Simulated scan of single mutants.
Amino acid sequence: MKKVLLVIPFMMAGSLAMAQSTPADDMGVGFGIKGGWNSANMSIKTDGTVDDKNALSSFNVGGYFDFPIAPVFSLQAGVMFTGKGAKFTSGDKNGENWVETKTNPLYLEIPVYAVGKIPLAPRTNIFFGAGPYGAMGVAGKTKTSGQLLGVSFSDEHNIKFGNDDPTNGNNGSSNSGDVKRFDWGLNFMAGVEINSITLNANYGLGLANIAPGSSNNDNDKYKNRVFSLSVGFLFR
């Protein structure tokens, strides 16, 4: 994971160098900002299936650079502040005994996209993109609430990020933390660019097992899945 995070800045620098040395379209290098809504979830089974009932609403906000390589192709790289996680419920919430846990870690994410564009009119494009991301958990909360024998209870605490090492967690204790700090995977996006306004839909496919004290070889895997919608502005 550390190697992935070290490689990504070099990819961004390489993208900038390529954009400067390759003939681009007349719109030039752009800087964009965007933000919106996330529907976060987790795959918690070995076959990668996701239970829609576990979806948790969160948000995304950040900025990026768009480096045109050709009139219909560009590279994008930036930094996003984004919420992930899921909620898990056991028991019937209409009954006397149930427990619900909401885990909402917040990450600084560095995405890199290869973007294809289909021109519809001057300064109007439909675009599609895909590429890798690396993310580091920086904050978040876990809230547990429920009812046992008719008595309600609730508890909330800041998320504790576990270590990537399956044998050593925070403070040297084994398996400590709610989720691992580092996440990585692939992003897929589509949208429309109208003048300087962008409308984006994005799907983040987490490939890292973020269950603390585990590895990608374990049978039980917790992997982030995030669908997001965002609105932004692209300045050139």
Rank of each mutant, 00 (worst) to 15 (best):
A139Y: 08
S15R: 04
M189C: 10
M27C: 15
F227P: 00
P122H: 03
P105M: 03
F88L: 07
H157A: 11
K45A: 15
V138R: 00
T46C: 14
T144E: 01
T89K: 06
P9H: 02
M42P: 11
D183R: 03
P132E: 03
A40C: 05
D164Y: 05
M12N: 08
V4L: 08
F153G: 05
A139G: 12
A55G: 13
V151D: 15
D66W: 00
L16F: 15
N224M: 04
S215M: 05
S230D: 10
S215E: 02
G162A: 07
P212R: 03
V29M: 13
V226G: 06
D183A: 04
L186F: 09
N94A: 14
Y222Q: 12
D25K: 00
L5Q: 15
L120F: 00
G172T: 07
K160S: 12
S215W: 14
S90A: 13
G213H: 01
V112C: 05
V179M: 05
P119K: 03
Y133K: 01
W184I: 09
T142L: 12
G169M: 00
F161L: 01
S57W: 05
L148D: 12
S154P: 06
L16Q: 09
P111G: 02
T167H: 10
K84D: 05
I8V: 14
D25G: 05
P71V: 06
T22I: 06
L229R: 09
P111L: 02
R181H: 04
A208K: 09
P111R: 04
F233Q: 07
P212C: 05
G140W: 02
S174T: 11
E100T: 13
A135G: 08
T142P: 12
Y64W: 04
A24S: 11
N216S: 09
N187T: 14
T144C: 07
E193W: 13
R225A: 08
S90W: 13
F161Q: 03
F65E: 08
R181E: 09
S57K: 06
K141L: 10
F73M: 10
F227W: 04
G78H: 02
V29P: 14
S21L: 15
F81L: 11
G32W: 03
S43V: 00
N38F: 04
S15I: 13
